[in-house]
């Protein structure tokens, strides 16, 4: 495996909504290929039948009572918005 092409870097960057420059693409492709080559050592480990861990401390679902608690009011929630209008977040045109 490993070896990531410039096109793959561009494709993944696009999936992550990043627009990267040509020089960044070049730099990242090399560095990420090195990192992925290193990561390939995981294939040396026999993990047949091993349960994956997504959580370091065992736990089941965290339930709580369905009770009303405090919340941010609309003005507070909008306070940090780069643009807002009439009590709503404002974004550029979605369909062009």
């Amino acid at each position: 495996m490993a070896k990531i092409t410039r096109d793959e870097v561009l494709n993944v960057a696009n999936l992550a909504r990043l627009q990267i420059t040509d020089s960044e693409t070049e730099l990242f492709a090399g560095q990420i290929a090195d990192i992925l080559t290193y990561i390939d050592m995981l294939n040396q480990v026999d993990t047949e039948g091993v349960t994956p861990t997504s959580h370091a401390v065992p736990m089941t679902n965290a339930f709580r009572e369905d009770e009303e608690t405090g919340h941010l009011n609309r003005d507070k929630a909008l306070e940090n918005a780069p643009e807002k209008e009439d009590g709503m977040f404002l974004v550029p045109k979605i369909i062009s």
């Binding site: 995981l42 091993v50 994956p52 861990t53 997504s54």
Partner: peptide
């Protein structure tokens, strides 16, 4: 990648 790494994580634990 993620699946394999999560299994190795179990073995480290």
């Amino acid at each position: 990648y993620y699946g394999k790494a999560s299994q190795v994580r179990t073995m480290i634990m």
